[in-house]
């Protein structure tokens, strides 16, 4: 049953991605991206990654889409149509894709409990964390305790990106001269 739902959802993802390529109105492309993120979030629920699905639904569908819309509002919504047929990119993509498909042929099957990824540190996290930490959500445990360094680094990246945005765009209004009464000092 899960395999069937997974099958259909991934098919829908592929269709949405194709639609995003073919559209030239950036507003429509952004909406396709929102749908794509929402479908990805549902796929994550089906694949047992509830925490990830939660994040993807909030970030991919909410924040990313809104930021893209805000950018389109500043940059303009129409993409110029390409003047020639993009044969070279198509060839590059097909060759790369074929190489990757060849690479999957000796990958472990989907859901295989004996795959190398399942036999490394994951059993230790699942078996030892009740005695060591005592918190039922293993994702939170690994995120905050076992891999605290990792999370600290990720948080620093987010912080740095925020600082970068402040440096590039700033929080003050750009043209206070148009409305002098609303001028504000920060």
């Amino acid at each position: 049953m899960i395999e069937l739902v997974n099958f259909v959802l991934l098919g829908l993802l592929a269709v949405t991605a194709l639609a995003a390529i073919r559209l030239h109105d950036l507003f429509a492309v952004t909406m396709m991206f929102g749908i794509y993120s929402l479908l990805a979030a549902v796929v994550f629920v089906v694949l047992d990654a509830v925490d990830v699905a939660f994040t993807e639904a909030a970030v991919g569908v909410g924040i990313s889409t809104i930021l893209m819309l805000a950018t389109i509002g500043l940059v303009g919504r129409q993409e110029r149509r390409p003047s020639h047929r993009p044969l070279l990119p198509l060839a590059v993509v097909i060759v790369t894709g074929a190489a990757l498909v060849y690479g999957t042929l000796d990958m472990p099957g989907f859901g295989d409990p004996d795959a190398p990824v399942q036999r490394h540190v994951a059993p230790r996290y699942l078996e030892q964390s009740p005695e060591e930490i005592g918190i039922p959500n293993v994702v939170t445990v690994v995120l905050a305790s076992y891999r605290g360094y990792d999370t600290l680094g990720e948080l620093t990246v987010i912080f740095t990106a925020g600082v970068g945005i402040l440096a590039l765009l700033g929080l003050r209004r750009r043209r206070p001269s148009t409305q002098p009464t609303e001028q504000e000092k920060t």
Binding site: A49, T55, V59, V117, Y125, V138, L143, I158, A161
Partner: peptide
């Protein structure tokens, strides 16, 4: 299911939106 990929991707999603925003700011 294996919790480790979940942790990696959970953080990657939020880092991803932060870096995307940086890229969009450069475009602006």
């Amino acid at each position: 299911s294996n919790p480790l990929p979940h942790v990696l991707i959970l953080t990657a999603i939020v880092v991803g939106v932060a870096t995307t925003a940086l890229g969009l700011a450069l475009v602006v």
